[in-house]
Design a protein around this nucleic acid. Sequence first.
DNA 1: CTTAGGG
DNA 2: CCCTAAG
Length: 499
Amino acid sequence: MDCDEHMRRCSIKKCQRVQVDESFVPALQDDLMEVEHLLAEPRNDHVSVDGVWYFHEQNLGKCYDIGNLPCGFEFGLKSNIGGGLDSPKTQDAKDDLKLEVLDGLLEDVKIDGLQATDAFSNACEDYLLDFEFTDKACGLESGTYGQPVTGNSSSESHSPGLSGSSICVGGISESRKQPIAQSECSNDSLDMKVTCHLDDAFRNNPCLQSNGDYMHHNPLDIQNLNELDNDRPLTGSISSHENEMVSVEACQTAALREKRFRRPTQRYIEEFSNLRSKEKVCTAATKNKQSIVKSHNDHHIRLKALRKTPGEKSICGTSDVALPQLRIHNRRLKKEELEYDEEPFASESEYEFITTKRSRKNDRRKHQRMWTLSEVNKLVDGISEYGVGRWTDIKRVLFSSTSYRTPIDLRDKWRNLLRASCALKFNKRETGKQEHALRPLPIAVLRRVRELADIHPYPRERSSKKSCIGQVGSLSLPSQSKSTPISHSKRNVRRNKCT
DNA sequence: CTTAGGG
DNA sequence: CCCTAAG
């Protein structure tokens, strides 16, 4: 990675950071999304950029245990070498030590630690510029506060006051190095650095009274930091400035918490707004963008509901309870509801159990149940017993245990069976080969279906069957002759009914 | 509510 | 499997 690339990326980061800082100030509930978005950016960048720092996480514990500088040097040098630095210096080591500690602590910095992030992002920045390389006895070519990313691209960039170094640090600070001071507290010789951190944090924070006498804070800050336990968040040391940052922190916290959930995509937001445009009755209480996040998981359900009820004028976007009522024909839904409720879910798949009841109700199509052979047999038995068209009776008697088969399903299945039997006859005559079904029904079943079809002709299907018969010719006649007198009467009744 | 028919 | 119309 060359220096130019590094600088370019750092500058990008800088811009992002500035954006973040600005967005935090006016951040309100409605701006959570944007804030969240902005927040997300640096995080990703951090992950992608500081691969070198990651190395230090493993050594973090050791550094803490020893808590002295030599240890830091050791690991810092290691890191430098690993990072591909051309000329690791002592200062490099120190810096890397800090970085590694920071990065390791980063994992411990949860939502609450975010507040200090920005402050210390700025802190790191100026701290490096103004103090690190001038005041520290190391007197080394610095190296590397921002450098681990790229190696040691430019030692000159770290000379005090150079913006280049600042930019690099900005990138680092985005990684939320709040614990930086903690780590330094453990090192006696680094107290001064800690002080500088705090000072610059305050100075650079737009919410705070700026600079000038920030050096005077040093004793106090050092004290505070020394009091800090390594495990304690640094936020306490800048608690005096929390007033200005409370709102920002709250927003950040909320944003981060929201990120715990699935973040709605821009497309979803657009779709949601479109849906809302259709939902004229919806109240304004749902404008809260959190509702978007919350309803995001139900997005597909809503879309499906909307699709099912194109004529519906009003759909309340917020009340999920209203979803079942969307259906004009809620009979089926009610039945399903009952059946699902009474079903022990043992036969349901895990996935279905995890999903909400509603989704299960609306996603019948999604989990299409294949008809088993036993089910087909039951259906055929039921038809032979009750006749074609009495689907509710068949369902009630024979399919009471299988809740997911509605009378409509039985009828549809019967329709398909008729088609299959017709195809069977057709194929028998034409080529003799079995129909190209994925799960070919046994010929015995198809034969039964065919007989039943002759006995109990399906009203509409009969015409298609007739065409079939017309093609087949005499083939269907024998089966017809096999029909029993009882069925004959039934069929005649049926036929009269239909015709 | 149930069924038929089409998608 | 879903939706709608009709009885």
